[in-house]
């Protein structure tokens, strides 16, 4: 295989607590998760860059019926998990678990809140989450 950057290589960087994205050398776009081909200009000429881990919340939900991986991690109706879409200060958006809000009043969670990266160790893996 001639592919250096893979889906797993991104998560291997997360394990080292590094948020590793890409920047297109042709059009300047920054991608997170990283890409092998620019989704904007189709260039294969990309640099790997490290993101600062700061962003703002763009959308969120509090999930009362979680997927089975979250159930295994202890979440459920009595202990819901907050998910959100975060816009990184460098530009791209990611999906992630969100911590630090009072989930008993989901209507009070504010879109636009500043969040910063929080690395969660869960079993063998490390997960990129964000906290207020």
């Amino acid at each position: 295989m001639s592919v250096d950057l893979t889906i797993n290589s991104y998560f291997n960087e997360i394990k080292k607590k590094k948020i590793s994205g890409t920047q297109c050398k042709e059009c300047g776009r920054i991608h997170l998760p990283p890409r092998v081909i620019c989704d904007h200009c189709k260039s294969q000429n990309l640099d790997i860059i490290e993101l600062a881990g700061e962003g703002t919340l763009q959308a969120y939900s509090v999930v009362y019926v979680p997927n089975s991986k979250m159930v295994a991690a202890g979440f459920g109706r009595e202990n819901p998990n907050c998910v959100g879409i975060v816009k990184m200060s460098e530009g791209p958006m990611v999906s992630a678990e969100i911590y630090g809000f009072d989930l008993s009043e989901p209507e009070k969670i504010k879109i636009g809140t500043s969040v910063k990266a929080k690395f969660i160790e869960r079993g063998e893996s490390v997960i990129l989450a964000f906290e207020v």
């Binding site: 939900s61 999930v63 019926v65």
Partner: peptide
């Protein structure tokens, strides 16, 4: 799966997130 579901999302969670963005 790696980028969305493993980040804690479900299908109701996705559309609910669109709903909070829409409400905002």
């Amino acid at each position: 799966i790696p980028y969305e579901v493993n980040a804690g999302f479900t299908f109701p969670g996705f559309y609910a997130s669109m709903a909070t963005a829409y409400m905002h």
